[in-house]
């Protein structure tokens, strides 16, 4: 009988000088919370499970659609047919890949009320999300409890990653003081995304996780990496000197404004209207001209100075200049949040 629990299954990784048997045992004893299991998240989960990270909690709010299969490497057509949540489908695949580690799936929307419990006990947090609201929440939690985390983002052919070890590197808010206002930046739905750049960025994130969890945090990449696989550019911009130099509310003043609910969105299901309202408290006014340009591939987008309207995925979106949106055609708050992140961004 084949022994899948033997540490020998990691022999090639242990033979690598940077990990060794000691590093492998540390990996096996480590716990990770993976926030988001879409494009980046599936590549991250695949790498971590194969590497033998002992405990992986996969958190995602979404279901699998055919358009996910182009880049979300853990999913297949059967998962779409079965209408499985991403966290659950991922957990099944991961258990089939490595039955000797502990995989937990959590189907939920990450917000300020649950992020603390989702990350409790984790040695490291991985970012597989598609929006800055959750990233700033992760950053708050990571700094508050002194946990490392790895940011990754992709759009089009472009990707970016940075590793945060609180008090040793700048945090996300040191580098990106604010998220682009809703509608001012591309999303994967408006600008598309190439599968290969997802794999590259998530693989770099996974490597950073392996370095930290195997006990080699000194080997992390302390800079911001930006890659464009279509334009053939690789940039490593220096951010390490920002530590202590910027007046960061989070890591310098220990004000956790995202967990405290001072920023972020609020959602309400509008009873009897089959609609959900999402309010956004980020103090940036939306430019409808920009948003209309981003959304033009979807078809008709109309706006005046009071509101912008468009249709996508059988829902009618009405967006207001302060970032508030009413999404008609669903009463499911999680779905509405997903649609908001997908088309309006943040």
């Amino acid at each position: 009988m084949i022994d899948f629990k033997s540490i020998d299954r990691y022999s090639r990784q242990m033979r690598f000088h940077g990990v060794g048997e000691e590093g492998q045992r540390k990996l096996l004893a480590s716990k990770v919370t993976l926030c988001g299991c879409g494009a980046l998240g599936t590549v991250l989960a695949n790498n971590l499970a194969r590497a033998g990270v002992g405990s992986i909690k996969v958190v995602d709010r979404d279901f699998i659609e055919p358009s996910n299969l182009q880049r979300q490497v853990l999913f297949d057509e059967n998962d779409v047919t079965e209408n499985l949540p991403k966290a659950e489908a991922a957990a099944r695949k991961l258990r089939a890949i490595n039955s000797s580690i502990n995989i937990e799936s959590v189907v939920t929307d990450i917000d300020r009320t649950n992020i603390e419990s989702l990350c409790e006990g984790a040695d490291l947090i991985l970012d597989g999300t598609d929006n800055f609201e959750i990233r700033y929440l992760i950053n708050d939690i990571a700094v508050k409890y002194n946990k490392p985390w790895v940011y990754g983002g992709v759009i089009g052919s472009n990707g970016m990653t940075m590793t945060i070890i609180p008090n040793q590197t700048p945090c996300l808010r040191c580098v990106f003081e604010a998220a682009p206002s809703p509608g001012s930046a591309d999303t994967c739905e408006t600008a598309g995304v190439l599968g290969p750049v997802v794999n590259i960025i998530a693989s770099m994130q996974a490597t950073e996780a392996i370095k930290i969890l195997s006990g080699k945090p000194e080997t992390i990449n302390k800079e911001l990496v930006q890659i464009d696989v279509w334009e053939n550019t690789y940039r490593r911009v220096k951010i390490a000197p920002l530590l202590g130099k910027v007046d960061c509310p989070c890591c310098k003043h220990r004000k956790f404004e995202w967990i405290d609910g001072e920023f972020g969105s609020q959602t309400t299901s509008l009873c009897g209207r089959n609609a959900v309202q999402i309010s956004n408290r980020t103090p940036n006014k939306i430019k409808f001209e920009d948003m209309a340009a981003q959304l033009k591939t979807l078809g008709d987008v109309s706006f005046n100075k009071f509101m912008l309207k468009f249709n996508a995925e059988d829902c009618e979106f009405t967006v207001f200049p302060d970032g508030r949106a009413i999404i008609k055609g669903t009463s499911d708050i999680d779905r509405a949040k997903t649609l908001y992140a997908r088309y309006i961004g943040h």
Partner: peptide, 24 residues
């Protein structure tokens, strides 16, 4: 961590505008 907008530039320097990337 240089001199912000007052940072001097010289011939051949490259100034990059880099926005945060949100997708994933």
């Amino acid at each position: 961590y240089l001199e912000n907008l007052a940072t001097p530039v010289k011939d051949g320097d490259e100034v990059a505008i880099i926005p945060a990337v949100a997708g994933g």
